[in-house]
Design a protein around this nucleic acid. Sequence first.
DNA 1: CCAGCCTAAGTGTGATCACAGATCACGGCA
DNA 2: TGCCGTGATCTGTGATCACACTTAGGCTGG
Lengths: 242, 242
Amino acid sequence: MERRDLHGGEARERPDPDGVAPLARITLGTQVYDALRDLLIAGELAPGERLSLRTVAERLGTSMMPAREAVSRLVADEALEVLPNRAVRVPVITLGKFRELTRVRIAVEGFAAAEAARIVGPRDLTAIREHDEAFRHEVRAPEPDLERAMRANRDLHFAVYEAAGLPSLIAIIEGLWLRIGPVLNLDMRSSPRRLAEGGAEAHHADLVAALSVGDAEGARTALAADIAGSAAFIETTGRLAP
Amino acid sequence: MERRDLHGGEARERPDPDGVAPLARITLGTQVYDALRDLLIAGELAPGERLSLRTVAERLGTSMMPAREAVSRLVADEALEVLPNRAVRVPVITLGKFRELTRVRIAVEGFAAAEAARIVGPRDLTAIREHDEAFRHEVRAPEPDLERAMRANRDLHFAVYEAAGLPSLIAIIEGLWLRIGPVLNLDMRSSPRRLAEGGAEAHHADLVAALSVGDAEGARTALAADIAGSAAFIETTGRLAP
DNA sequence: CCAGCCTAAGTGTGATCACAGATCACGGCA
DNA sequence: TGCCGTGATCTGTGATCACACTTAGGCTGG
């Protein structure tokens, strides 16, 4: 985990002198939560890695209280776990758990894709195409930037889900990504070249094509194939706990 | 919210998916969380009702810290919300949000029912039948005990979901119930007699029948009809915010 | 009598301290 | 040499205090 300071400068003190009150409360606890959340989804925290409230607080430049709240919320999301030994760590996903999460993802995210296909408009569609294009461009590059590729992949997926117009469903999906993020990104990072071999490009193309013509079931199957493909690749790495 | 003391109550340990670790952390914060959770699902906290960390702590016989953690987790679950005014309250669900949650419920819980139908065993089936019988008995009684009926309904549903063997899916569904619990139970409470008019009995019968023969799609449609029926009833009460 | 300020109570948030339990390295005994 | 006890250290949890902010109610001045 890299060093970063949450309140660099006094920007936090007086938000928005223009008069528009911030809709969302930006407490320190929330900021720590978001920081840890990004680290988890980006795979910068490896499964099994241990955290400490005090070190987290120190590295983010706050006291222990915001770290406590953030870790509590992440534990509630099952994105972190606190062992009976009173140790906080990134959960180690077993193979069985990974397969279970994959099945749930296919069901939930597949439903989101199907709903998106039914009501997607031209605005959402162009955004989706842009993310798809960005992903394809990054993967086909001679030296793919893994981080940007993963970000494009994530943006593409969530652009589709947001097109479904079901915010509560997006929250659920974010919770799922929060849990598979560590193992998924960590393994992807280990072998960037195989990123394209999972057939992600083809699945994405099918997905965009189905969305374009409003084919709900086509979108669902394309997305399911994408998830299954990446999951199968992860399993081949054999890094998952038995 | 009624007075209850945590020290007298027993800590409920949530079932471990992997089954190996019987050690459950029973912190005060978790106990407060469970207490508030039960109150929310049971509909004893009305939408819009305001909470205070200090009053919660006092009523449950603890200090403010466990109440803080519990409320933080519930806010993260969107089961509570803290307004920019720094006021914590039970969210007021709008009609649009209620319909959205209902659609998500039909998709997610319908999937769970379908999966359950595929792999349900005789043990789960008998448990499901018992809950179904308890619900029917309670509804048909001359003076139905609403609380017991709702409990039987809840037990029936979750017995089905647990039969699907997907713990992460159950966690998702619990999150959904946590959010619709207040509005659902509150309205049911207002007119107990109409409990049966939603067709819950018939839908439950269809569900159990489909589960018995392994009819996945039948189970899905039966459960979807049950959810849609109760949702339609809620909407007729007109209590939802526009 | 009414409007407007303005104090006082109450709110969540953050910091600091206290404490029981677990971990781990070190040292002494067999 | 190998093993076990043991204390220093680190862990999360809980309690208490301080603070900025909101809100409601009483008071004053018109």
